[in-house]
């Protein structure tokens, strides 16, 4: 006893000041505080440490913490900028900012390129594209013959790989996306225009003036 002054830290490891995060992202301070409500919900869902572990991310996306999914893994890895196996609050806010409707298209194009460049070589290679198509088909319980998958991948490369070197570089990717803007559809989350409505408890917890 006698520890009346000992106070538990208010925020967990990885917490960053909303004022700084707002200055560096597309969000306002109040929106960052609202995002903290969402972050807390996810980051305390299994392991109560205020960090998003992969199982918690899977649980939030699929209502099942064991649902392995190549694309969710890629998103998790890209959000985990420090590559320490967890998503911290600052990483969460900065990454989500890319999905903000007001964020420049170039940032979204670059993020999608990194997402699909599975091995981080700076190119989307043919094998990577085939692996992603196969993963999507498995996820959807759709069956296509290997021949048809090959045809789809070949056809896509004919359209996207303009210098015909067997891999898609970031410039070819940008050109391809400009011609096929629907490919960026899931890089924009309209919900982010209205975060305060989704997670209104910021009003109770706000530290901003």
């Amino acid at each position: 006893m006698g520890c009346v002054l000992a106070k538990k830290a208010k925020h967990p490891v990885g917490y960053e000041d909303p004022i700084i995060l707002a200055a560096e992202t597309a969000f306002t301070v109040n929106e960052v505080e609202s995002l903290y409500e969402l972050f807390k919900k996810i980051s305390y869902s299994i392991i109560k440490d205020g960090l998003i572990h992969k199982e918690e991310f899977q649980l939030a996306l699929f209502q099942n913490s064991n649902n392995r999914n190549l694309f969710a893994d890629r998103i998790f890895d890209l959000f985990d900028v420090k590559r320490n196996g967890v998503i911290e609050f600052g990483e969460f806010v900065r990454s989500l900012s890319i999905f903000h409707p007001k964020t420049a298209q170039d940032e979204k194009i670059a993020f999608a390129f990194k997402l699909y460049d599975l091995r981080g070589t700076g190119f989307i290679e043919r094998e990577e594209l085939k692996e992603m198509v196969t993963a999507l088909l498995n996820e959807s319980d759709l069956f296509l013959s290997d021949d048809l998958i090959e045809t789809i991948v070949d056809q896509t490369f004919k359209l996207a790989d303009s210098n015909c070197d067997g891999r898609i570089d970031s410039i070819e990717w940008k050109e391809f996306v400009m011609k096929n803007p629907s490919l960026l559809k899931n890089m924009t989350l309209p919900y982010l225009m209205d975060v305060k409505m989704s997670f209104p408890s910021f009003i109770m917890n706000s530290e901003a003036d």
Partner: peptide, 25 residues
């Protein structure tokens, strides 16, 4: 109708890429 589907169109439909789910309910 295009003869063959664009592979990126196909993979962009993955549930794993639908972060909107995080904001629902």
């Amino acid at each position: 109708r295009p003869a063959v589907m664009n592979a990126f169109e196909l993979i962009s439909t993955s549930q794993g890429l639908n972060l909107g789910v995080l904001f629902e309910k």
